[in-house]
């Protein structure tokens, strides 16, 4: 059943509508799956299509309600705009919104109110256009105890438990977690693209989550990946010190040793180059996708082998 969660008149002959599709069978729990907060992140579009398609074809296995919100920022997706077009606002800095506020605040508030009360919310993000990410779930330290067990059900490669930054209090995940709706933030892939394999990986994760929550009757017939759970201290950041064009010399997702050359920053004018080296040994889970870099541009993140648990 397709429902409108929030709507707002635009200026000329059109309404902004945030819609969800509800799949229901039995009286079990409810989970919500949301994506499309950033208009340039499309990996979630394929993933939620797969989930919807799978549930429709196997509705008898469902015991409960699955709400799928494919586009929290439909104008952004439509115009390849990361934020809310016309506002220069990152929607994920407006939550929980305010029912008496501006258009963006009203819409964000309606979304939170609609998702509130779900057993779990899965908030799917892709990376931006600059970086490629291995499938991961990000959890702030203060919610780790309740969320890490759920994250382990999601068939992802690793879980990154990070310190909670004040600025992140305006995210959908923080807003929902702070009112008791357990919310997992999934990051995967790269902006403006769809990687089908990642979509299938996430589909399996969500079906397994449903099974573990008692909302899916059939035990999944695949082996669920057991993620590495890492804390901030285990993640090494590689930022470029040079400006130029980055070309990678390693495979994304590979193991690297401290000091290995990950790639080079080229100066096309002088034909010079600067090597970019691994700051620690471990798994290269983030790698620069967009080649042009400034000093400071993030090139890679490495999950240090030494502090894995």
């Amino acid at each position: 059943m397709i429902q409108t969660v929030a709507e707002n008149e635009l200026s000329v002959n059109e309404k902004l509508k945030i819609r969800k599709n509800t799949y229901q069978n039995g009286k079990g729990k409810r989970i919500s799956i949301v994506t499309g907060t950033h208009g340039d992140e499309l990996e979630g579009q394929f993933a939620v299509w797969l989930v919807g398609d799978y549930i429709k074809k196997n509705i008898g296995c469902l015991n409960g309600t699955v709400d799928i919100y494919p586009a929290l920022n439909p104008l952004g997706i439509d115009s390849i705009t990361r934020g809310i077009p016309g506002f220069d606002l990152d929607m994920n800095r407006v939550f929980p919104g305010f029912s008496e506020g501006t258009m963006a605040e009203c819409v964000c508030n309606a979304i939170v109110e609609d998702i509130k009360g779900s057993e779990v919310c899965v908030d799917i993000h892709a990376s931006n256009i600059y970086l490629r990410e291995l499938p991961q779930i990000r959890i702030s330290r203060d919610t780790a105890e309740s969320l890490v067990p759920l994250a382990k059900m999601m068939n992802i490669d690793f879980v990154w438990v990070h310190e909670s930054a004040t600025v992140l209090r305006s995210t959908l995940a923080h807003s929902l977690n702070s009112i008791g709706t357990k919310t997992l933030v999934v990051e995967l892939g790269v902006g403006m693209r769809i990687n089908k394999d990642l979509g299938y990986q996430l589909l399996n994760g969500i079906i397994n989550l449903l099974y573990e929550l008692g909302m899916w009757s059939e035990k999944p017939d695949f082996e669920v990946r057991q993620p590495i759970v890492s804390f901030d201290g285990a993640v090494g950041f590689v930022n470029s010190d040079a400006s130029g064009v980055f070309v990678s010399d390693v495979e994304f997702g590979s193991e690297v040793e401290k000091g290995d050359v990950i790639g080079r920053v080229l100066n096309p004018l002088t034909a010079e180059s600067e090597p970019v080296k691994a700051v620690c040994s471990g798994l290269l889970f983030t790698l620069r996708e967009y080649p042009v870099v400034y000093g400071g541009s993030l090139i890679a993140r490495i999950l240090s082998r030494e502090e894995e648990n």
């Binding site: 707002n8 008149e9 635009l10 200026s11 000329v12 902004l16 506020g101 501006t102 258009m103």
Partner: peptide, 8 residues
């Protein structure tokens, strides 16, 4: 000149 619903 153009305004949306719920704009301040």
């Amino acid at each position: 000149p153009l305004i949306m619903q719920n704009s301040v």
